[in-house]
Structures are given as C-alpha cells and as structure tokens.
Design a protein around this nucleic acid. Structure first.
Lengths: 357, 357
DNA sequence: AGCCACTTCTAATACGTATTAACCGCCTCG
DNA sequence: CGAGGCGGTTAATACGTATTAGAAGTGGCT
C-alpha cells in the first residue's frame, strides 16, 4: 500500500491516465468555446480521469498564465477587528458576497492586519493579484497604493468616492451631495434658517461632499452660508448639552446636521445628551444625521437621517468590477447611487428664536 | 515622457537594468540565507534598480513555484444570506479571519449559494482545493462530501464535532457534554429535580452531546432520568405559555433546558411568552439555554446559559489546520474546548411543587 | 606551474496552466 | 490522383519566480 500522495493531481496526471496530452486536458477542463472542438469520447475520458484523481486547478498557475481565477478580492483599509468598525462593514461584506456568489465568483478576503505602512505590497508582493480583480473600501485610504494599483492596470472598484492624483479610479459612491442638500431643504421647509453643519475630522471626499451638499441646499433655498456654522466635530463625545445650548442660545441655531462616525460613539453621545443632559430633540433643537449610525446597535431613537444603500452599493461594485474584467474599456466608470431619506423623529418645526447677528 | 507602463516590472527587468542575471536578482530579493553569497556592490545595484522600477513580486509565480498559495478556505454548509444565520456565523468568520491574518494567510470564502446536492464537488471538480486547506462549519453537513475530502487527504478542520463513517475528521468542538452536565448540576444545587430537556430537531452531534451531558449531570446528582422529560422541540414558537404550564403543572417540571436555534426565533419566542403570556422566569419556571442565542440581537434578558468561545474555536481551528499543512502527521487531531457559564437571571430556586408520579 | 579552495555569479530547469501554430489522417472535390 | 479542407489532437511556448549545479574568476599553497 503506497503512502497517500501529497502532491495534488495536475493536468499532466490526468493526461497520462486518459492517454491524451496535457493540452487536451486543458481544453476540456477550461470548458470554454474551444472545448467544442474536442471529440465527445475524449472529453468524457478526460472528465472521468479528472474526477477519479480529484483534480482541481492550481490557481497560482492559472493566474500566472493570465487566465481567470474566478476569484474576487475584497480589501479593507481599516483594521477589521474592532467591533465598532465591523458593524459598519458588515452590510458591504454581505452585498459583495451575495453578488459575487450570484455571478459565480468566490471571494478572497485580504485581511489587512499588517503593521501599517504599505500593506497591499507587503514584502514587495502584491497579494491582490491572485484575484481577477478587487473591491476595496475603507476610510483611511493609502492613496499611493491605490494609485499604484491603477497604474498597474489591475482591475479595482472602490466603494465610496475617492479621487487620485493622475489616475482614474472606478468607484460606486453614495450621492452625499444631493442627500445632504435635500435634507437641508427639508429643514428649511420647516422654517429652519440657521443650521449648524458638523463635519467629521479629516478631509475625505465623503466629508467634502456633505459640505458641498450643505452649501447647495442653502443656496437652493436662497440662504447665504454663514461660515461660522460649519465646524469640525473632533469627537462625538464633544456633543454635550453645553455645546448644543451654546449654539442654540448664542448663535440662533435651530437645527444641527452631523456627520456620523463609523462606530457607535455618535448615537451613544446623543443618547447621553438627551437622557442625562435634558436636551430634547427636536423640541429644543432639530438634529439629523448625514448617514447611517451603525446598523445593529439597538437604536433608542429613530434619528432623522439619510441612509446609504450599502448592500446595493456593494452589489453594484461587484457588477462593475466584473464588467471591467470582461471588457477592459478605456474610461474608469464611476457610479453614484442615491441615498434614501429616513424621516425619523428628531426634526421638527423651527422654534421662535430671538437672535440678532 | 513615456506613457505609464502597463506591464509590471519583473525580476528580468531589474536584471537587465542592473546588468546581472535574473537568478541574481532573485537571490538578492529573496533576502534569505543565500543572499549573503552576493557581493555587496551587486546587492546594492539590484536593490537600487528594484526601487527605481517599483518592483513588487508576482505572488502567483511565487506560489506556483513554492507549492503554497497561502490561502485558507472557509466553507459553510448553510446558506449564508438569511440574516439570522449570519449572526450565528459571524463570530466564527471573525476568528478565522483574525488568526489567518496573523499567520500570514488570506481567506477564501466559498460562498455556497448553490442548488443543494453536492456543492463542493461541482462538475467532479473540488473547488476547495484552490486553497491550501479549508475550515468548514455548518449544521446540515453533507457527510459524503466530508468523507471524500478526508479520503482525498485534503487538509480540513471542522468547527464542531462531526463523526464520519470510516474516516477520521479533524475538528475543534465545544464541550457540550460537560457544559450541559454542569448546568444540570447548577439547577440541582438550587433544588430542581425535574428538569425538562428540549432537544433541537435532527440528530447531529451537538444535539446528542447535550443530551449526554443532561444524562451525565443527572447521574452525577444521583437522579434517575425520566425519559418523558427529554423531548424534541420542532419549532421554538411552540414554546408557548400553555406548553410551559402544561409541563410545570402536570409533570412537576421546575426547570427547562432548551437547545437554542441558530436564528433568533428562540429568544423571540421566550420574550413573547414572558411578555404577552405572563410566564415569569424564573419565578414560574427556571430556564437555561444550552448555548448562545444569536449574539447581537438586542437581548431583552440576560438568559442563564453557557457560551461557546466561538472566536477562540475559530482561531484554534486555523492553528490546527496550519499545523496540518506544515506537518502531515498521521492522526487527525480533534480538540475540545470548554464553554463558559453565564449566570444570567433566568434560573432561581425550585419552587415547592406538589406533584406525584 | 599546477592544484585546490573559495567567492561570486549565471545557465538551466521546474512549477502548472492557457494558447497557438502546426500536424495528421481522412474525406471531398475537381 | 493531387489539392484543399476539416475535425481532432498535440508540441511548443510563455507566464515570473526559486533553486541548484556549475562556470568563471581570484588567490594561496606546495
């Protein structure tokens, strides 16, 4: 009794067993259009031999040669393990997985636990390349890496709008501009004139787009922008009762737009503020979130907000990526999908506020 | 200014630029022990050229040569998309991902959306073999497939105890027997003598192990098993107030052990029963869960239960798998990890109950 | 001078697949 | 009877890397 073979069966093994050449085996197993030129009996013999040997193609060889692996990569720039963050990514993962499966691709999770710096090219190796293409997402993008991927002509689609210097990146992004603008319109319709806009830290595209939307919404309503009402909120915990009262009492603010953090600190802070601090939304002040709080922390309130169709964005990203694989057309496609308005219960009519500039 | 190069730089490009051979480049860049035999000036020249060209190794070629892909598969026998199931599956995914990353492997998600029957072997080809090895889990295992994988000598580790006819399967399993036995001991200590044991449908190992634990716990307490107190609960929704009252009033039951479903139907049913039906746990009846309800549905109660260390099991499974890859020793290792007791608030002292056999 | 030892580098090859040009046998048609 | 065509198969090659045997050069020692 021979010891069990460790080596996996190759096309050559199949070829020998079926009495044909390796090339024939490849033609049969690739199954493509070329396989019709193989006579049926030969085909069957090859398939039988493959079955008996428990053959499965070696992806490394396949992708080295340039063939399809039918693997899609998924890469996240954030560390995935902090629980807060994962709540944010989960819907994306779901959507990507679902659509990939539907299209007959398996998913390759590049789990970047690495040290920091350049992670995609760890040890000078681009790990992504095992897959046919890759969906990427995350907030703290390392743009040099992204640019390098684009330069290398590796098919990638980003979930979220990202701009690169000197390179066109494909993406599927939420339409923060219009969503925010509409939200402003909604507030104006209820009589609000002085709306505080609280930006997240940093200067990523989503943050900029929300500000653009804010400005556009005010412009559409014929209201001049008071630059002092655009602030950066370093930490959601700063959203204290005192902070809010300051704006309402001394600046005449009647409504606040706030860009949510990806963890649940924002909603926690708001809950604390209204519970312990006695600030009543919307009686004292209307408030609306510029996006979703993490989805499955138990929500004590139904915040007025807009909601990004994360799963749909993810599915769209996969479709886009696969279309890139199939037809490497020139321009990098960039899609924008609308957000849905969630009425919620945290905005109301503007109260009478005595305030003079 | 030349248009940006499409093809990525290879070792051959570097070799040409540095005026050496490809082999030399490989020796230098691999950095291994053999690189010491390269003269320092040559080394520097190669490194410089590599830097200028922005070289990054082609992982496909690398793993083709090395015989390793550094991919670990993750396959689940359940359909993955129903959100309920997902909640169950997620901690495992996290653990697997974390440990795989730590060990320098990426994760290949085999997303089985397929039709049913034999999914791993589609078209006589084993999809799992794309990876170096595979972690599997799920309730509705197709044992023929598992057995075939073992027979083919493909490295797999199951999360959960599974027995196969004529094949040794490696697994990492929770110690349901002792956990259940201990839980019974806890109830007996509080005066309970007639404990209803509600099995899940089916006859999988976890279900059998829990029953074994139930029997062992009673035996340890010197209580004879009343077979009529071991029942199968087809649907958690059957856990109505009437059902519970039936057992407490006509059979003298003072405590119930119930095997949770993987979705959130069980806790939902219990919530309904205690809210609408007026059954008070533990005043009317003690109740404990033989495992975790889905982790992040908002828990209205802190159920007494034991909890499996899912992430740890997953990490252990990955370690086990990698050890299988590195050293193909004979026996298939099988590990059991203890569960942790969660006191909760749904058990109490046994009430006086007038009941005669 | 001849030989060996040592350092530094290279030629050659293997890994497993996809692809293409070529080949072979056979039939048809002129 | 030869030219041409066609269906079916294969030889050859490329992909980018790691590895090994050995070549070329250098110097020391007898």
């Amino acid at each position: 009794m021979a010891p069990p073979r460790q080596r996996r069966a190759t096309q050559l093994d199949i070829a020998r067993r079926a009495g044909v050449s390796q090339a024939t085996v490849s033609l049969v197993l690739s199954g493509g259009p070329a396989s019709t030129q193989i006579a049926e009996p030969t085909r069957q013999a090859v398939l039988a031999a493959a079955g008996e040997l428990g053959y499965s193609a070696n992806i490394a060889a396949k992708s080295l040669k340039g063939g399809r692996t039918y693997l899609l990569g998924l890469y996240t720039f954030e560390p995935v393990f902090p629980t807060d963050q994962r709540d944010f990514y989960y819907p994306f993962l779901m959507g990507v997985e679902e659509e990939a499966a539907r299209q007959g691709y398996d998913l390759l999770l590049f789990t970047s636990i690495g040290s920091g710096e350049r992670e995609i090219y760890t040890g000078g190796v681009n790990r992504l390349k095992l897959a046919d293409g890759c969906v990427l997402l995350g907030r703290n993008v390392r743009r040099e890496e992204l640019a390098e991927l684009v330069r290398e002509d590796f098919p990638i689609v980003f979930i979220g709008r990202r701009e690169l210097d000197g390179a066109e990146l494909s993406y599927v992004a939420a339409d923060y501009v219009n969503a925010t603008s509409d939200l402003v319109g909604e507030l104006v319709r209820r009589g609000h004139r002085r709306i505080l806009h609280l930006r997240a830290t940093g200067d990523s595209e989503p943050t900029r787009d929300r500000e653009s939307g804010y400005r556009r919404g005010l412009a559409a309503a014929g209201i001049a922008v008071d630059e002092s009402l655009i602030r950066t909120l370093a930490d959601p915990a700063d959203l204290t009762p005192a902070f809010i009262r300051h704006w309402t009492d001394t600046a005449g603010v009647t409504a606040i737009l706030v860009e949510p953090s990806e963890d649940n600190r924002l909603t926690t802070a708001l809950d604390v503020t209204s519970a312990d601090g006695g600030v009543r939304f919307p009686a004292d002040c209307s408030i609306a979130l510029l996006g979703d709080p993490p989805s499955w922390t138990p929500e004590l309130r139904n915040w007025t907000r807009y909601s990004l169709p994360r799963a749909e964005m993810a599915r769209t990203a996969v479709q886009l990526l696969i279309s890139l694989l199939d037809g490497p057309d020139g321009a990098a496609p960039q899609l924008t999908v609308p957000c849905s308005f969630v009425p919620g219960d945290s905005i109301g009519p503007a109260p009478e506020r005595t305030w003079s500039r």
